[in-house]
Amino acid sequence: MSLSFPNVYTHRKVAEGSAKGCDVCYKPTTSVLITPENKDFFYVCASHLKERTFCTPIVDKAAEEAKKKKAEDEKEAKMKEEVERVKKEYEEKQKKKKEKKDGEKEDKDKDKDKDKDESKDKSKDKEKKDDKDKDDQEKKDKDGETPAASDEPRVFALQKFLYQQRLDKKRQAEIAKRNRERIANPSFFPSVPKGLP
């Protein structure tokens, strides 16, 4: 059985009930680093993953470029939606201005009332725009928070000495297992002599 495995560990989370002590600081943690094909795993605090003396993140350039492209596409779509919304608002305002001009010719008294109503509408429009701006800002803040969590690297390479320790630990466990199997086998020990000395 081959004991070597690549120095590529994927960060995974386990259920709270399955939390065990961190291999570094012994505090209970739900974060696990695991190798491909599950040859090695160990529990480690998420804070240790940020330490350069413990491990370094492995960046998948293709995945990162795909994320950037997706983010740019989303920005483009939002911009197009915003432009369409502004165009519609502008067209509505132009229609209102035309109606206002037609109404001025008919009755000057109505014009005064319309000016009052329009000033009220403008103040309402400003309030709506302020509310929309606040909502947009809140959405941007929320959007900014979620990618931060997902942008954390998930694949790591341990430092050389730590990786060597993991290999040595696996090797020792394999040797101990082989020794237990040998001891359990009765043919391992010599047989008792049957003849007289």
Rank of each mutant, 00 (worst) to 15 (best):
Ala62Val: 14
Lys61Cys: 05
Gly103Asp: 14
Thr53Ala: 02
Glu99Asn: 14
Lys116Tyr: 07
Lys112Glu: 15
Lys78Ile: 08
Asn38His: 11
Glu16Pro: 01
Phe42Arg: 04
Gly103Ser: 13
Thr56Leu: 01
Gly21Phe: 00
Arg52Asn: 09
Glu104Asp: 06
Val83Pro: 06
Lys80Ile: 14
Gly21Val: 06
Lys78Met: 14
Asp107Trp: 01
Lys75Trp: 10
Gln94Ser: 10
Gly103Ile: 12
Ala66Leu: 09
Lys98Val: 08
Asp111His: 08
Lys20Gly: 06
Ala63Val: 03
Glu84Trp: 01
Asp121Gln: 02
Lys61Trp: 05
Lys87Asp: 05
Gln94Phe: 10
Phe41Ser: 15
Asp73Asn: 10
Asp113Val: 11
Lys96Glu: 03
Lys95Phe: 02
Glu64Ile: 01
Asp102Gln: 12
Ala71Asn: 08
Val59Pro: 00
Leu33Tyr: 00
Lys20Ile: 05
Lys50Ser: 13
Asp111Asn: 08
Lys67Pro: 01
Lys20His: 02
Glu81Met: 01
Glu64Ser: 04
Lys70Pro: 00
Lys80Leu: 03
Thr30Trp: 04
Ala63Lys: 14
Gln94Glu: 15
Asp111Tyr: 07
Lys69Trp: 00
Lys112Met: 12
Ser119Tyr: 02
Glu84Thr: 04
Lys68Glu: 12
Tyr26Thr: 12
Gly21Leu: 09
Lys87Val: 08
Glu65Thr: 12
Tyr26Val: 10
Glu37Gln: 08
Glu64Phe: 07
Pro36Cys: 09
Thr30Gly: 04
Asn38Val: 09
Lys116Cys: 06
Val86Trp: 00
Glu74Val: 02
Lys110Thr: 09
Lys88Asp: 12
Ser18Glu: 15
Leu49Trp: 00
Lys67Asn: 10
Val86Arg: 05
Leu49Pro: 10
Glu37Ser: 09
Arg85Cys: 03
Pro28Glu: 03
Glu106Arg: 13
Tyr90Lys: 11
Glu76Ala: 11
Lys108Phe: 00
Asp40Leu: 06
Cys25Ser: 04
Ser47Pro: 04
Asp60Tyr: 05
Val86Glu: 10
Glu76Cys: 07
Cys22Pro: 11
Lys69Glu: 14
Gly17Asp: 13
His48Val: 00
Lys50Val: 04
Val86Ser: 01
Val24Trp: 07
Ser47His: 12
Ala77Ile: 02
Val24Met: 03
Gln94Asp: 11
Ser47Val: 06
Asp102Ser: 10
Pro28Thr: 13
Ala71Leu: 08
Lys50Arg: 12
Lys97Ile: 09
Thr56Phe: 00
Ser119Gln: 15
Asp115Gly: 00
Thr56Asn: 04
Tyr26Glu: 11
Asn38Ser: 13
Lys93Thr: 02
Lys108Ala: 12
Glu65Phe: 11
Ile58Val: 15
Asp121Ala: 14
Thr35Ile: 03
Ala66Asn: 09
Ile58Phe: 01
Asp113Leu: 14
Asn38Asp: 15
Asp40Lys: 07
Lys27Ser: 13
Thr30Asn: 10
Ile58Ala: 02
Gly21Lys: 01
Asp40Ser: 08
Glu64Ala: 05
Pro57His: 11
Gly17Thr: 13
Asn38Leu: 09
Glu81Ala: 06
Lys120Cys: 01
Pro57Trp: 08
Glu91Ala: 11
Lys27Ala: 14
Val44Glu: 00
